[in-house]
Simulated scan of single mutants.
Amino acid sequence: MRFIFLLILISTTSFNVQAQQDSVKKTTLTLATLYNSNVSYYGQTTDEKLPYILGNATVRFPIGLYLSAGAYKLLNYGSGLSETDIGIGYDYNFNEKINTTLAYTRSFFPANSPLLQASNENNINLSINYKWKWLQSSLSTDYAFGKENDIFISLTHSKEISIGSLFNEKNILSIEPAFELIAGTRHFYETYTIEKNKRNNSHGKGKGPASSGNSNSTSITTVASESFNLLSYNFKLPLSLSRASYLAEISYQISILGPKAEADLKPQQSFFGVAFYYQF
């Protein structure tokens, strides 16, 4: 997930620290923990706020291959884990300006999951990054499949800006504002609305959120559009503090949905997150 995030969505956890310059020829292990105020699926959120915490471990090998495993927990829904995932990927650097990543992630969701992405358990990602003189651009394509099949294309422009140091010259402060456009299909939404109806009907049986506040609400099952449309505009502003082997980050994101978004999704949403990464 770049989304998931992560994105993901996050499909895998990655970050920029000074230690990466010295770790090209050795195997590294990166551990990450993250909190976010709401789940975002390519800039889209449900009508119910779902804050969560996430944990991830990624092993990178000198040949460019990496393996990852992660899990996250929705803080206001159920008692167990809300999703777990495993992934494999490969990074290749053509030169100092161009690099590509190919990755596959398999996610596991509990029954009646409230997540938009729960119908697409598999994700294949191909991304190309190019470093211009003043900024970095990334073109990413995701094929998400499982109960449904969806394609997403993301175009991101970002600029890393060094602010200075904190406490001493080894602690580097930086910001990396980014603007992202995401287009794709919406087949996943059909399964989401069906599962939402099931959850609404099962309230009072221990399967719903701990406190949803809208147990009397109803939803209409909408057949997802077959067309490929603009899904969201996203602006991100992360502030990070990095040293040789760790990075701490706070971030803010605002997402605005495209003109053909489903009525059950919030047209505009803000996200706040904190994260910590440590590399061995």
Score class of each variant (00 low, 15 high):
Y143W: 08
D142N: 10
E176V: 03
L181D: 11
T193D: 02
N214M: 14
T185V: 09
R243H: 00
S202A: 11
L247W: 08
G164N: 03
G184A: 08
S137E: 06
N214P: 00
F235A: 14
G146E: 02
Y246S: 13
T218C: 01
K196R: 15
L241Q: 08
T156Y: 01
I194P: 00
E195V: 01
L231A: 09
L155S: 15
T218Q: 15
S174F: 09
K207W: 12
N214L: 12
S211Q: 13
A210N: 15
P238C: 04
A144H: 03
S211D: 12
S227D: 11
K207Y: 05
F152G: 10
I161F: 08
E176C: 15
P238Y: 02
K170V: 05
E226G: 09
K159L: 10
I220M: 12
Y233S: 11
L241M: 04
Y192D: 05
N229C: 07
H203I: 15
E180G: 07
G184H: 06
K196A: 13
E169D: 15
S174W: 02
E195M: 10
A183E: 01
S162W: 04
F152D: 03
T156E: 14
H203E: 15
G184E: 06
K207Q: 12
L231C: 04
H187I: 01
F145I: 01
N197H: 13
